Simulated scan of single mutants.
Amino acid sequence: MQFRLIQPTDNPALAKILRDNLKANGLDIPGTAYFDDLEHLSDFYQQTGRDYLVALNDAGEILGGGGFAEYLPDQGIAELQKLYLTDTAKGQGVGYRLVRTVEVMAREAGYQQMYLETHHALKPAMHLYEEMHYQLVPEPLKTAVHQTMDCFYVKPLVKS
């Protein structure tokens, strides 16, 4: 398995992975990333202070991805965004490696904390975040873009 930065040709596969995950969990509804402009995902992450990694298997097939972007930049807080994997990649440690790598990139971009929003129906995601020492907070740090999300986490980005 390897990681690389997102490319425009990745957009269709990543959009499908994200939407398939949300639909499988009953979250293909307004207020989720399901309705984001995923067909141009790579464009969003081309701006300074943002990055998105794509996970590939040994055959070069996309297993999923995850990235970060500014959330409260004046407070040094980035948001972990759009971390989704194919069903075949789940349970293989890909999510852990992906989150760790994205955290390093965010820290190198100057962020001191990582924030994320998820939904209680995404139990494996919540387990991953808690295993990686994200702390559940009672509400979003600011008004959430994806209003349906109902679980919020924060983690300091310290050098390991």
Rank of each mutant, 00 (worst) to 15 (best):
M1S: 14
R4I: 14
Q7V: 06
P8M: 10
T9P: 04
D10M: 12
N11A: 08
P12K: 12
A13M: 07
L14R: 03
L14P: 05
A15M: 05
A15C: 03
A15W: 00
I17W: 02
I17A: 00
L22P: 02
L22G: 01
L22H: 02
A24T: 11
A24K: 11
N25D: 12
G26M: 09
G26I: 09
I29L: 07
I29D: 07
T32N: 09
T32M: 08
A33R: 11
D36F: 01
D36W: 05
D36P: 03
D36M: 03
D37N: 15
L38V: 09
E39I: 01
L41D: 01
F44R: 14
F44Q: 06
F44P: 04
Y45V: 09
Y45H: 14
Q46K: 07
Q46I: 08
Q46H: 15
Q47T: 13
D51F: 02
L53Q: 07
V54G: 05
V54I: 15
A55T: 13
A55E: 12
L56R: 04
A59W: 08
A59M: 13
G60E: 11
G60T: 09
A69V: 09
A69T: 14
A69Y: 08
E70Y: 08
Y71F: 15
L72K: 14
L72C: 05
L72W: 11
D74E: 15
G76P: 12
A78K: 14
A78C: 15
L80Y: 03
K82C: 00
L85Y: 05
L85F: 02
T86G: 12
D87M: 05
T88Y: 05
A89N: 12
G91H: 08
G91S: 02
G91I: 10
G91F: 03
Y96E: 13
V99G: 00
T101A: 08
T101D: 12
V102F: 03
V102G: 02
V102I: 13
M105T: 07
Y111A: 01
Y111D: 02
M114W: 06
L116A: 03
E117H: 02
T118F: 00
T118H: 00
H120V: 01
L122P: 01
L122H: 03
K123M: 06
P124N: 07
A125R: 05
A125V: 04
M126Q: 12
M126A: 02
M126C: 07
H127K: 12
H127P: 01
H127A: 07
L128T: 05
L128H: 00
L128P: 02
L128D: 00
Y129H: 10
Y129V: 00
Y129W: 06
E130R: 13
E130Q: 15
E131W: 00
E131M: 10
M132I: 06
Y134E: 10
Q135M: 03
Q135K: 13
L136I: 06
L136G: 01
V137P: 04
P138T: 13
P140G: 04
P140K: 02
L141R: 11
K142E: 14
T143H: 06
V145F: 02
Q147I: 01
Q147V: 10
C151H: 06
F152Y: 15
F152W: 13
V154D: 04
K155A: 01
V158M: 11
K159T: 09
K159A: 12
